[in-house]
Amino acid sequence: MGLKNKNRITTLLCNVFIWGCAFLCAYPIFWMITTAFKDRIDAFTVPPTYIFSPHLDNFRAVLSSGNFMSAYKNSLIISVSTCLLALLLGIPMAYALARYKVRNKQGIMMWLLSTKMAPAILIAVPYYMIYQKIGLMGTYIGMIIVYLIFNLAFTVWMLKGFIESVPVELSEAARVDGAARLTAFFRVEAPLMKGGIAATAILCFITVWNEFLLALVLTSFRTQTTPVAIQNFISFEGIRWGEIAAAGVLVAAPAVILGIAVRKYLITGLTMGAVK
């Protein structure tokens, strides 16, 4: 009886602790969302109020500033293009590493990992000089190129794992029936790893969408992405917290929604497949 009670108390304590942590995780986000709907007086009330009449002025102000909308468009163009390009180059690379006898596979995987691990500032400094010389400064293509460096390696690591998880016998069976290996990939293996490919693409999208430093130094006013644009709200507008919060909601929403959608793969992705 003592043991049972002890177990019950442990479970209760764990629940309290976990829900406490969940509250701490959620509170800043909850606070940002409510601030986005407050007018200026409510936003600056001390102590913070939780009862107020919500209104959409902040969102209207953010959306009507053409600057922010064009940044949103830039972010979309750059993120989606990087994803597609990374998949286009990454799927064949991953397939080669997963299914063929490739010499020094370990060395190749480590090399890929090291490109992913390099601090962004290492990329920013030389690329800043190179782009000014060859005229890629402030262009979409320039941004897609630098983001490809980080995401191609990630894509290959992720997809290699997914391809290996499809039993090789399935494609061999199709080949016995006369299909070429290429056909077998599209007919048998690709459909089975659709989920994995989608998750990889989404994680790639989130990485690019959230990136700040490279966007800060390599984009121009016309091609700046949302993380850069939102930071301009501070300097240009003083401290209009309501508007910053509204912009924050709009910037974070796609990343958060997509992240929740692929939550099963999130940890696998963030550890390059080291944790399944």
Partner: peptide, 27 residues
């Protein structure tokens, strides 16, 4: 352990790390 509403808790706990870091800094 046995947690009430585990699925929801896990999603809430995930939020900070998928938020855009710049937005986290601003908050």
């Amino acid at each position: 352990k046995r947690i009430y509403g585990k699925e929801i808790v896990q999603i809430i706990i995930m939020l900070p790390m998928i938020m855009t870091p710049v937005v986290v800094g601003l908050i």
